[in-house]
Computed example of a mutant assay.
Amino acid sequence: MIKNAVIVGLGLIGGSMAKALKKYTDIDIIGVDINRDSLHKAFEEGVISYGVTHLDFQVDADVVFICTPVGKVIEKTKNILPYLKKGCIVTDVGSTKKVIMEEVQKFLPDEIFFIGGHPMAGTEKAGYDNADADLFVNSNYLLTPFDNVKEDVLDLFINEVIIKIGAKPVIMDYNKHDAIVGIISHVPHILSATLTNFAHDKCSEAFKYAAGGFKDTTRIALSQTEIWKDIICTNKEVILELLKNYREVLSDFICYLENDDIDTIQKFLEDARKYRNTIT
């Protein structure tokens, strides 16, 4: 049974996890964050029972959530290990997995279980003030456990945490994870930022007339720069290959337009509409 948790990082995801655990479970939570205001708010709201800016003491945690930007997950995981009991589950919420999993494996003790985690939920907003207890409801929660994670330990984490907060657990290999999120998350973010920069450089006055389509397409360009810098750099190989593939598709479309190939343009748009309708 999972009774105690530590959450490192009370931003949008970490704060939402804390609020979700408080709302849907009886798990007691220690919060760790360098932002004292976030700790104070979480404590005042009764979300956490204790808050510290730095964990340097033994804790009776059954599970630890590392909810920092991707670039800090490895360091934070390594730093917290001396204060954990045997059998503790450590998990992250990062948008990339290969770099994290391969680095953590180098120093993880046999008696600690690391389960890579990535809740497919979030917004372009940031910080504890935007945290939501229902953020994970009906969302896929991707899991990439190490081979040493026993089946009963993984089942415990899924049943006591993932399902109770309303998410849908999906277990996969970390390489497959990075390939999938590269397609549906990382490249789209780059394209959103690219379109925003392109429009500004071409005609910044056009922003005054932007309506729903442009705003929807560029919304994720509002996301935190530090977080996305880390994500892109830790999934570099996957993203590079996908961008090259995307460039080929764009080049093909330019040819259709140059050659007045109306039938192919129509099919291109119809296919996109058909594929988009399959997303629930």
Rank of each mutant, 00 (worst) to 15 (best):
V70N: 01
G9T: 05
V70T: 05
I27L: 10
A211I: 02
Y256V: 02
I227G: 05
F157R: 01
V47E: 03
M172C: 14
L250K: 06
L191Q: 05
V170F: 11
D261N: 14
E75P: 03
D134P: 07
V52N: 10
S204Y: 10
S38E: 00
V73R: 01
K244N: 04
E160D: 11
K215I: 13
I29P: 08
R247G: 01
K3L: 13
F214P: 02
E270N: 12
L143S: 04
L240E: 13
I27A: 07
E205M: 04
E258D: 15
E44W: 00
G31Q: 01
I171A: 06
V90D: 02
Q58C: 05
N175C: 01
T280K: 15
I163N: 12
K215N: 06
T196M: 10
P145S: 04
M101W: 00
T280S: 12
K236D: 09
K267Y: 08
V64C: 08
A5D: 07
I239P: 00
S95H: 01
D134V: 04
G31P: 07
F198E: 11
L81I: 15
V6C: 09
K72R: 15
I227D: 00
A20G: 10
I163S: 03
G182S: 14
I227A: 10
N35W: 10
M17E: 06
L156R: 15
I112Q: 11
K125G: 01
K236Y: 13
D129C: 06
A42Q: 11
H118I: 04
D60K: 11
M101N: 03
F136W: 12
N175A: 03
D147I: 13
D152G: 05
D178M: 03
P169F: 11
I162A: 00
Y275R: 14
V181M: 03
E44L: 14
D33A: 15
L12M: 09
R219T: 03
E160W: 02
K236C: 00
S95N: 08
L142C: 11
S185A: 09
I239R: 02
K176M: 08
E102T: 11
C255Q: 15
Y174E: 05
Y275H: 12
Y83E: 09
K125N: 13
F114N: 06
A42S: 13
A210I: 10
L84Q: 14
T77M: 13
V73L: 04
L250F: 09
I183A: 13
I279V: 09
V249R: 12
A121I: 09
F57S: 14
P109W: 05
N4H: 07
T280E: 15
K125W: 06
E102S: 08
Y246T: 01
N148Y: 08
A121N: 07
A121Y: 11
V90G: 04
